[in-house]
Design a protein around this nucleic acid. Structure first.
Length: 321
DNA sequence: GGTAGACCTGGACGC
DNA sequence: GCGTCCAGGTCTACC
């Protein structure tokens, strides 16, 4: 009998809204099923990979699932240790550790999102996966990021899971380049994996809220393949939302939606000024403004089909929509 | 400190 | 079907 788990959520938590809140929900090995409203994810646990299907059944007599517990059905029996592992990984991935009060604080700063309740951003079960996903999203169009992550899971991971740092550290650059289509990122990805696998990168230090922002930023910029944009993006994935990862998509948003004009440097300064009132929530304000734009074009993210709608976010298309 | 060019892939486009 | 151009962030060399 496969293991079933129940995981409690913050009082405002809605799976379909809060899981489908950041582009990584469309990247392998994450699978959102718009028909069933379930989130499927293969996790590497103590004795091997297991597929977990996560849902949030609507409680009897209630019109909203907000705060209802998550139901998790595993593809096999999980040991006690594995159940604990799965809970920790799911909690990180779905940001169940962010309280309703923290989200309410964001809404006080930026009331535009209080009606929708937006505030949480989905991320990966581990910092390592977040870092690799960020590297595969740099200097490349979104469909290529999708391809890289799918192939990394298929070629290097066990049974389609995202590879562990140890697995990726053992991969050959030529394999990553030829079979995973990561291009020149091959050596950087393997070097990152080696740093995580050897313990040179201490995930606990990066995840620790007590670690100063400046030290965190400097440490991220020291990593191979991590520049200013990637470092700022990883910081928001670590829950530090005051810094904006400004890329070409941010510039497109500024020019097309906010009607800003000027050089790239000028427009970036205008964006910083625009979101400055949100202070430590600046990234949330930026991101959900952008996400609203996407949902205005494609409908609610929880209705997106991964292979079609989810792959349609290219700059050239968005520019003309 | 600022800037130019290389890095690699995939899609768009013209022929 | 083929060749060319372009988008995308990081890194290095150079001024």
């Amino acid at each position: 009998m496969p293991t079933r788990l129940t995981i409690s959520t913050p009082a405002d938590y809605i799976l379909r809204r809060d899981a489908c809140s950041y582009g990584y929900f469309l990247l392998h090995p994450n699978v959102w099923n718009p028909q069933c409203q379930t989130f499927t994810r293969i996790l590497c646990l103590e004795s091997g990979p297991a597929t977990l299907v996560i849902s949030q059944p609507l409680p009897r007599g209630r019109g909203t699932p907000a705060g209802a517990p998550l139901r998790v059905v595993a593809s096999r029996v999980l040991s006690r240790v594995e159940q604990h592992e799965a809970r920790l990984l799911i909690t990180r991935m779905l940001r169940l550790d962010e309280t309703a009060e923290e989200i309410a604080d964001f809404h006080r700063v930026d009331p535009r999102f209080s009606a929708s309740g937006r505030g949480r951003l989905m991320r990966s079960p581990t910092l390592f996966e977040d870092v690799i996903k960020t590297v595969t999203s740099c200097n490349v169009t979104w469909p290529s990021t999708i391809t890289m992550n799918r192939r990394i899971c298929e070629v290097v991971g066990s049974d389609g899971a995202f590879p562990t740092a140890r697995q990726l550290a053992r991969a050959r650059p030529a394999t990553l380049r030829a079979r995973c289509r990561v291009g020149y990122r091959d050596a950087r990805i393997i070097e990152l994996a080696r740093l995580f696998a050897s313990g040179s990168v201490d995930s606990h230090w990066f995840e620790d809220p007590a670690t100063p922002d400046d030290a965190l930023l400097a440490a991220l910029l020291d990593l191979p393949g991590i520049g200013p944009y990637a470092a700022a993006n990883i910081m928001q994935l670590l829950g530090r939302y005051h810094r904006l990862p400004l890329d070409s998509e941010a510039l497109r948003h500024a020019r097309n939606v906010l009607n800003y004009s000027g050089t790239d440097a000028q427009v970036m300064k205008m964006l910083e000024t625009h979101y400055a009132p949100s202070g430590r929530h600046a990234f949330r304000s930026y991101w959900f403004e952008l996400w609203n734009f996407y949902e205005g074009l494609r409908g609610p993210a929880y209705t997106w089909d991964q292979a079609t709608t989810g792959a349609s976010f290219t700059a050239s298309k968005l520019k003309h929509e």
